[in-house]
Design a protein around this nucleic acid. Structure first.
Lengths: 201, 201, 201, 201
DNA sequence: TATGAATGAGTTTTCATTCAT
DNA sequence: AATGAATGAAAACTCATTCAT
């Protein structure tokens, strides 16, 4: 990150094997489940020797959490960029845009959705610092912002999951307006009767 | 128990071992996880021979799903009885009472909570017929009752989980009023021009 | 055993279960092999409790040898009767008739053929006393009758087996004339230049 | 053996464990029977870890068929070399020499004989291509050479077996002249026109 | 770094046999 | 005689991890 002058090859190469392992593992985890995937299988699919696995990961659990963090980061970055969020939007608008776009992205890739919903919890998020950012963005317009965001997050993740993976009770497209409206209702509950309230017209 | 009304011996004995296995497995699954629990361990804890396991269950997966169904049924029955629901309550009151009581029950037993949240999905519920009952109870006061209940269920289950198991972001006691209010807000969104009827537009 | 006056029912009943077990076992042994057949399976197929097996047989091996003896006896009796052997035939004619008819019987039932070829050896035969009878029948027209019969028996059993079961290299119908001619040739080798030799014309 | 001509290390080592397993299994199979030999035993006798077995063989059945093919090849090669067959011999002489020598080899090693007779069938031979070679060698002097060879083979294998393993009805030494004469008799039956070769019209 | 043969503890699963009813 | 639940020893098979190359 600093010098970056040298070691372009070795770093790249290392990254290559590591990525091959993560990609292979992701596919196997999502297809057959974490418990039924062996390290041998992962190495084989990644076209890497079994021993090489231990050069980059401590064990299967380590691998899984690294994949989870990586995938979640990817999604959020992409959703943020693609959601068309602008500075002049208020928090609710921003949040709904981000959630809406994230759902679209996940809907395109149900394997990814499965994986994240199963492995990405609130604790992962709070550790990442993103939660604090979001709280900061509320700008004091809401009371108990952490609990509020927690409820919204759990609702979104959990409700999206079955819709994406099983299309139950409805598919994700149909669910989206319902979910966004429910989120709005929750937000409304937490709104401090500050700035507005009147211009609801 | 006394004479021999029907066939108490065989049935009871059979049920005994089976239950011993289910109880032992439940405890092990919740304490150390499904993947890290072996059939030998289950049998040992149940004080039953290893081979006996295969007399009652096909494999670990079969055992798990049988436990899940059994526990969920137990909880709901108990919550219904204890929730003090009466005929003259409206749907919202009934639902909030039931959820509130279920949360209390789960809060008392975080192992049970963990287990159910991880293994009890919307599909299990919809298969059980309970969902239809609940929909019938709405009495037409809400539009899209299935989606509405789906959202509420996912929110409740998902949000309760982390609160019970990790006390994150707050413990279940603190979370409860927030959750119930959020549910109310969602219900309000789906209310058909009922009580008020007039100011709709 | 002593009285033998009574117990017609019990004997019959006993025989019933025993036969059910033998029949079930025969079918399973021939279909899936002796090694892959369990006592549970046999009992289940015979519609008899597992424990009942041990009332009639010591173990799987005991059962097998009892079946073998029983089936072989059946075949030979039937072949003898059906072969149209008469007193005025010479040994060669009798032997060829018996073999020919036995092959026909086995050809009709390849499972039986499989079973017998795999389990019926020379030693079983020699123990049964049938061999001595056959030797006696040669009437001194052949030298080394035991070895001669041994060769013929092994050739017949072994060659018939693959023909019946796999139709390899040809089916049993095609093989029969070849086999009978080969047997004749062997017999000729052992003929003592007694009675004839001249009229070979 | 010396430097490193090609890839002696891996190949040799691999071959070593594999051979150790095959040798151990062969001994156990012949001594106690296939069904009564466990993989653990084989591995233990081969002084190899249990898991190593599965590196080289799918299961016990795979192992058995690989051993059978290997042993049969060995015997035939050795018999051919040691039988003193020369170009100027006719087919009968060659065949009898080969069979005679094979019987000697098998007689020296009754375990090997047992194993091969039980597991080496006509189909194995016909798949190996050796049968075609033998047929070609007959040079048209016999009709139906395949059936003829089939009969001879089955007779030889089957008759040798009991003689070698049980010395019943006589031992292999005594049996040999009888068997060879029987084979000659069969060959004679199949000879095409003429003792000699010229008047083939 | 990278490899992959080797390991052996640990797991699942089968099944002959017993025995209380 | 008949049953079949229960047993547990033993078998098959898996797999994370190590280590010599």
């Amino acid at each position: 990150m600093e010098k970056k002058e040298e070691s372009p090859r070795s770093t790249l190469k290392k990254t290559l094997k590591q990525h091959a392992l993560m990609d292979a593992a992701f596919e196997l985890f999502t297809n057959q489940g974490f418990g039924k995937t062996s390290i041998s299988e992962i190495a084989e699919k990644a076209e890497v020797a079994k021993g090489t696995f231990y050069l980059y990961f401590k064990d299967k659990y380590d691998l899984r959490s690294r994949i989870t963090a990586h995938k979640a980061e990817q999604i959020l970055k992409r959703a943020w960029v693609e959601s068309g969020i602008t500075e002049d939007m208020n928090f609710e608008e921003k949040l709904l845009s981000l959630i809406s776009r994230s759902m679209d992205i996940l809907a395109e890739d149900r394997l990814l959705a499965t994986f994240l919903v199963k492995n990405f919890g609130y604790s992962t998020l709070s550790k990442s610092g993103l939660l604090e950012e979001a709280i900061a963005m509320t700008g004091g317009d809401y009371h108990d912002p952490e609990i509020m965001l927690y409820l919204i997050l759990e609702l979104t993740g959990s409700a999206s999951y079955s819709a994406i993976v099983n299309s139950e009770p409805v598919n994700i497209e149909e669910l989206k307006p319902h979910l966004l409206k429910a989120i709005s209702a929750i937000l409304a509950q937490y709104k401090t009767n500050g700035t507005d309230k009147k211009e609801e017209k």
